[in-house]
């Protein structure tokens, strides 16, 4: 498994990277952690003539809170997400999810930007971003813009990014203090993509759910925002009948492929099971 030849570029600023991507056009690919792209190149499923390594751009490695948002530079690694005290305190679902991505070695290099931007429906963070209503800072030749995670994913490996654009940061509104959360992922083994996974963030008050958001991983060509299911949950005590209804609503929006992880019907049902379990665990964790 040997990649084809390419020219290597290592810009030191976002503007330089964007210029390169623009001038080199279709022949260029941006390289973040490389743990999706390099295996594809070794299999010759991708053969870019130019590789633009974003690893030298210091401004893409940051993690801070500003104006009610956590802003995470795109080249922040999953290992860094796991180790961040800020995230553990404010958005613990991110470290919970990151720990379920691939394996330790991959997490040292795998980045949040690569994970959310490449459009692989098997990636875990996109559904979490949809669940958290994150926004992506994007830059291209026509300047910066923002895209809501919920609008970003259009198909397998198809996203709202225009040619030459890169994700530079991920903005996540800080969830309400005391929120409950869970990412439940069913997989065959460490290192596998999800057979199905569900991200849940909810808030409780007086024994009732007052806010709820749900994302689903790898049960369609894109990560899914289970808006209707979340709506069913809001206002409930998470009683069995309501959960069952929400699970049915979530299952109804799935359209998984049959693969070695199981036939489509199984994966749909597992999305439901993961959702039910994520709801239960999120509830345990929620204050009040």
């Amino acid at each position: 498994m040997i990649p084809g030849s390419f020219a290597y570029h290592r810009p030191t600023s976002v503007s330089e990277a964007v210029l390169l991507l623009d001038s080199l056009g279709d022949e260029a690919r941006a390289l973040a952690g490389g743990h999706s792209l390099i295996p594809m190149m070794k299999l010759r499923l991708a053969s870019p003539a130019h590789l633009i390594d974003l690893g030298g751009i210091g401004e893409l490695r940051s993690l801070r809170e500003e104006a009610g948002e956590i802003v995470i530079g795109a080249m922040t690694t999953q290992h860094e997400l796991i180790g961040s005290q800020l995230l553990s305190a404010k958005i613990p679902i991110l470290s919970e999810t990151s720990l379920l991505i691939a394996d330790p070695q991959v997490r040292y290099l795998g980045t949040i930007g690569g994970n959310v931007a490449n459009g692989d429906p098997g990636n875990d963070l996109p559904a979490v971003m949809i669940c958290l209503n994150a926004t992506y800072d994007v830059t291209g030749k026509s300047g910066p813009r923002r895209i809501a995670a919920r609008d970003f994913y259009q198909g397998a490996y198809f996203t709202a990014l225009e040619p030459g654009e890169i994700v530079t940061a991920i903005r996540i509104p800080v969830p309400q203090a005391g929120h409950g959360y869970a990412y439940e992922k069913l997989k065959r083994k460490i290192g596998d993509y999800a057979t199905a996974a569900a991200a849940v963030v909810l808030s409780m008050s007086g024994g009732k759910v007052v806010a709820c958001s749900i994302g689903l991983t790898n049960v369609a060509e894109t990560p899914l925002w289970a808006e209707e299911a979340a709506g069913i949950i809001v206002g409930s005590t998470l009683d069995a009948a309501t959960v069952k209804k929400a699970v049915a609503a979530a299952e109804a929006i799935t359209a998984p492929a049959s693969d070695a992880r199981g036939p489509a019907i199984y994966r749909t049902k597992m999305a439901g099971v993961m959702l039910a379990r994520a709801l239960a665990r999120a509830r345990q964790r929620a204050g009040a």
Binding site: R10, L31, G34, H35, I38, G55, Y108, L109
Partner: peptide, 20 residues
């Protein structure tokens, strides 16, 4: 697996130029 800048890295999934 090797140790690179204090990280465990699978050296089959990195280009040598990245390790400059």
């Amino acid at each position: 697996t090797i140790d690179l800048n204090g990280m465990s890295v699978k050296s089959c999934t990195m280009f040598a130029v990245q390790a400059n």
